[in-house]
């Protein structure tokens, strides 16, 4: 499973938050590691044996003793990769198999070519991804709110695929444990005054990911978490 492109991936660490996805995590880690050998899976207190599966697939596993939320898992992952001196880039990657390593390679090339510190994935830069109408509306509203409240101009604020350079990873401090962390991340990066860009990504909406996807109700929760803090 080699990619056609020859890109140096040695300084790249994938950060994968994991919560009860033992069914797919082994595959996701194996496939990711064929391109990016360094993977840290943050198991967010799963009840299943996903952590063991990920470890067998060759990932470093950091395990929360209790469930804290995806935002907390990402921050733990960031703090882990910060402790690795070889880390130049950190990539936030989903455990459910909806992200493509090819997109990460494109992001990495873009960042290197244009000397960027952050590259956000966006579903809306090309027409490969086809979210449902309801989902599109929620995402549009979310990005509208994020652009309004932060110093950024993005087309997709709640995309889980991001590439962050070491100096940015060192300054990130996610305090929103649950869903609002995506907006918080954008907000912190916006306040840092770093060079960022977006790169088109293809999100695979499999039946599996759809069955546990964000509902419209969740956007209400995100908004409340952002306002009350």
């Amino acid at each position: 499973m080699n990619t056609s492109r020859q890109v140096d991936t040695s300084g790249v660490w994938l950060v994968i938050p994991l919560y009860n996805e033992a069914a797919v995590i082994g595959d996701v880690v194996t496939r990711a590691r064929s391109v990016f050998p360094q993977v840290v899976v943050v198991d967010d207190g799963s009840a299943d044996d996903g952590a063991e599966v990920a470890r067998e697939a060759g990932a470093v596993v950091v395990r929360h003793p209790v469930n804290l939320g995806q935002g907390a898992a990402l921050q733990t992952g960031f703090e882990y990769v910060r402790s690795r001196p070889d880390m130049e880039w950190a990539v936030t990657f989903d455990a459910d198999g909806q992200h493509q390593t090819d997109d990460v390679l494109a992001m990495l090339e873009k960042a290197r070519a244009e000397d960027l510190q952050v590259v956000f994935g966006s579903r809306f830069l090309d027409d490969r991804t086809t979210p449902s109408l309801a989902k599109r509306l929620v995402l549009r509203a979310a990005v509208g709110y994020t652009n309004l409240t932060t110093h950024t101009r993005l087309t997709d604020a709640h995309n889980g695929l991001r590439l962050l350079r070491r100096d940015v990873v060192e300054r990130i401090d996610i305090t929103q444990n649950r869903m609002a962390h995506a907006s918080e991340l954008v907000e912190q990066i916006g306040a840092m005054d770093v060079r960022y860009a977006e790169s088109p990504v293809h999100i695979l909406y499999t039946d599996y990911s759809r069955s546990k996807g964000q509902s419209l109700w969740n956007s209400v929760n995100i908004l409340v978490e952002l306002i009350l803090r």
Binding site: L68, Y80, L228
Partner: peptide
């Protein structure tokens, strides 16, 4: 409102503790 904020404070500390344990263990 105060209860919400107090719980958030508590959660922040609890998160730091759990994270420390997780990282040390790793």
């Amino acid at each position: 409102v105060t209860t919400y904020l107090r719980f958030r404070d508590l959660e922040t500390r609890y998160t730091r503790l759990a994270r420390r344990i997780a990282l040390d263990e790793a």
